[in-house]
Amino acid sequence: MTGRRRQGFLFIRDILHVVLAIAIIVMVVFAFLAPDKYAIFFPLVFLLFSINCLLDAIKYFKNEEHNKYSFIRAIVMSILFLFMLLMSTIGFLNL
């Protein structure tokens, strides 16, 4: 049962990565085409990227191989998540 649960989590995580990547690309294109009209997209891009970093951090923390680089990657992705979340918050406050 645990293997099925893990496979389900991996599938959902991969689907979320694809959806977030498509959403980020679309928002960035619109934000650069008409920055005044789509100013809200700039902090949203940072927010979506921070969620993407969180998904990667979870992936590296849940890595069953437990090699030393996996933990370092998880820490780096966690720090990047916090930084992007901070950038998103600052962006929303400046609107």
Rank of each mutant, 00 (worst) to 15 (best):
G3C: 02
F41W: 05
V45D: 08
N94P: 06
V19Q: 09
F41M: 13
I40N: 14
Y60N: 12
L55R: 01
A23G: 02
R6Q: 08
Y38R: 07
K68E: 15
L54Y: 11
M77C: 10
C53W: 00
F71S: 13
T2K: 03
I79W: 03
I25W: 09
I58W: 02
L86H: 03
R73C: 12
F71M: 09
R13I: 00
P35V: 14
L44T: 13
A74V: 03
A34G: 05
I90R: 14
A57S: 06
H66M: 08
A39D: 13
S50I: 01
L47E: 01
S88M: 01
T89L: 06
I15W: 06
L20K: 00
N94I: 11
F61E: 04
N94K: 10
F42K: 13
R4V: 07
I58E: 01
L16H: 06
E64C: 03
K62C: 14
I75Y: 07
L80S: 08
F49W: 06
L82H: 00
S88C: 03
L47Q: 09
H17R: 07
L44G: 13
L54G: 15
R4M: 12
F92T: 10
N94E: 10
I51A: 12
F83Y: 11
I15M: 12
A31P: 04
A23R: 00
F32T: 09
T2F: 15
E64N: 06
I22N: 01
I40S: 14
F30W: 09
